[in-house]
């Protein structure tokens, strides 16, 4: 029963979502609404579960003094600090002027932006060291990247000021994005789409069972 019940639920929910797409009338649309509501509820519970799990793992790491346990301690302190601040300010904790809002604006936003901006430095370093015209494909990629990077910033058109309107770097970058790039993306998307359809059918029909902890 531990395997049959989840498989049964998966089949019913999956099939009803497929059917309601083609027949958006009762009872299929009602079923779809009902399952969508349940999905939101389950995901909300999963967020709580995820937070509690993070706390549990972090506590164990600190308790056992595992490598880098200091970072786990920072997680625990930050989590508890923000939670207590948020709860103490009631339902309006996110409104401008609250302590939670101050933490969000002056700690969370700068820290998050800093983490993300580090990417720019690594991209530059990696490009310098590894982005070489070693073969035809790499050269093609390099040329495309060169024109798109220049064409997507105003300085690109400034460098080719002598070119007539419509033949500037920004136009070339637009063409690369709209034609060869979009064609490649479309091919990838079609491939992914077909993969999703076949995997979904396998899950709905109970052929693929790895999501419930078992093999074929």
């Amino acid at each position: 029963m531990r395997r049959e019940v989840p498989l049964f639920i998966t089949a019913i929910v999956g099939a009803s979502f497929v059917i309601q797409y083609f027949i958006p009338h009762p009872p299929f649309n009602n079923l779809s609404d009902w399952f969508s509501d349940w999905f939101s509820i389950i995901q909300a519970c999963a967020i709580i579960l995820g937070a509690l799990n993070l706390m549990k793992i972090s506590f164990l790491k600190v308790k056992d003094k595992k490598p880098d346990w200091v970072y786990a301690a920072v997680i625990i302190v930050s989590f508890l600090f923000i939670t207590i601040i948020g709860l103490s300010e009631g339902e309006e904790f996110r409104l401008p002027g609250t302590k939670f809002d101050w933490i969000y604006n002056f700690i969370f936003i700068p820290l998050s932006a800093t983490m993300f901006s580090i990417l720019a430095f690594f991209v530059a370093s990696a490009s310098y060291r590894a982005f070489r015209a070693r073969n035809f494909e790499a050269t093609l990629l390099l040329i495309a990247a060169f024109f798109v990077m220049l064409g997507r910033v105003p300085i690109g058109d400034l460098l080719v000021w002598f070119m007539p309107e419509g033949y500037q770097l920004s136009n070339l970058a637009s063409w690369v994005m709209n034609v060869p790039q979009a064609a490649g993306q479309r091919a990838i998307m079609i491939g992914i789409g077909l993969g999703i359809v076949s995997t979904s059918l396998r899950v709905i029909l109970g052929i693929e069972r790895s999501h419930i902890g078992g093999g074929e």
């Binding site: 310098y128 060291r129 982005f131 060169f146 220049l150």
Partner: peptide
Amino acid sequence: SQSFSHMVVIAFVLIGN
């Protein structure tokens, strides 16, 4: 800033090549 950083990255790619 974006224009400058793009130029610097392109310059480093060119230098490397």
